[in-house]
């Protein structure tokens, strides 16, 4: 009840610089439960950086974060920038955000099943048997039940990415974060991964997804955000952003991508 009424994620005015390079210049994003937000934009526009600020793999210089019912606490450090003040809170929030990386990042010294149960068992302290049951169900869902005892090195890229999606799902994340989940894949493997992501969207999972798959973004998103040089240049339902963008740059980007 309490959470239903509030958005799963409210991020306001995020700034981030690397040295003198301003990568994010005040980006805000709100995602209600069940929203699928696609982030598009040209290379270097700050898409990954923004996504990584949401789970604090990058520490933003400025911004306010309301995630999964919690306001992130900040304090100003000695360098004059703000830092999250409570590492335990960051860890707790991260375990409620499932992240899927472009390069999968499965742990090669563990089998697929071990990869998937690692966080439930060791971070969330779920009982091992229950975790295995759930992990096996998730692996079946992404079509990898047969591969559960294999090591990541023996899987194709598409299988590894599906395994990493199962790993992210196994903590019951309130929001899923995807950073170009299909960009590292051979073209013939893209489809199987998109199929899994689409099924998650259809289940009503809240997802933020950086992607170059324009057609897919158009199909599954409830909202599309176009970033340009660290700023939101255009945001709205896919029909608007892809069909009738108001920003000239967005128009250009979409025209360039559609052939």
């Amino acid at each position: 009840m309490r959470l239903e009424a509030r958005p799963a994620l409210v991020v306001k005015d995020v700034h981030k610089s690397y040295g003198t390079l301003k990568v994010l210049k005040g980006i805000s994003l709100e995602a209600a439960k069940g929203d699928v937000v696609s982030i598009i934009g040209s290379s270097g526009s700050g898409k990954s950086t923004f996504l990584r600020c949401i789970n604090f793999l990058e520490i933003p210089d400025q911004g306010s974060f309301h995630i999964n019912g919690e306001d992130v606490e900040f304090r100003t450090g000695r360098d004059g920038k703000s830092h999250p003040s409570n590492p335990r809170q960051i860890e707790r929030l991260r375990s409620g955000l499932g992240m899927v990386f472009q390069s999968f990042n499965l742990w090669p010294h563990m089998t697929i099943l071990q990869n998937v149960i690692e966080a439930p068992v060791h971070v969330l302290k779920v009982e091992r048997k229950a975790a295995i049951e759930k992990a096996e169900a998730l692996l079946a869902k992404v079509g990898l039940y047969e591969k559960r005892e294999s090591y990541p090195a023996f899987l194709s890229g598409g299988q590894q990415q599906r395994a990493s999606i199962a790993r992210a799902l196994c903590v019951d994340p309130a929001v899923m974060l995807f950073d170009e989940p299909t960009s590292a894949l051979d073209p013939e493997l893209v489809g199987e991964v998109l199929k899994v992501i689409r099924s998650l969207a259809e289940e009503g999972r809240t997802m933020i997804m950086v992607t170059h798959e324009m057609k897919f973004a158009r199909d599954v998103s409830t909202r599309v955000m176009f970033l340009h040089q660290g700023q939101v240049e255009e945001v709205g339902p896919p029909s608007q952003v892809f069909g009738a963008p108001t920003s000239a740059r967005c128009k250009e980007f979409i025209a360039a991508g559609s052939h």
Partner: peptide, 16 residues
């Protein structure tokens, strides 16, 4: 580095 980021991303503390 990505393997360590994946571990941080599921909520592990640095010692874990």
């Amino acid at each position: 580095k990505g393997e360590l980021e994946a571990a941080l991303a599921v909520g592990m503390r640095p010692s874990m």
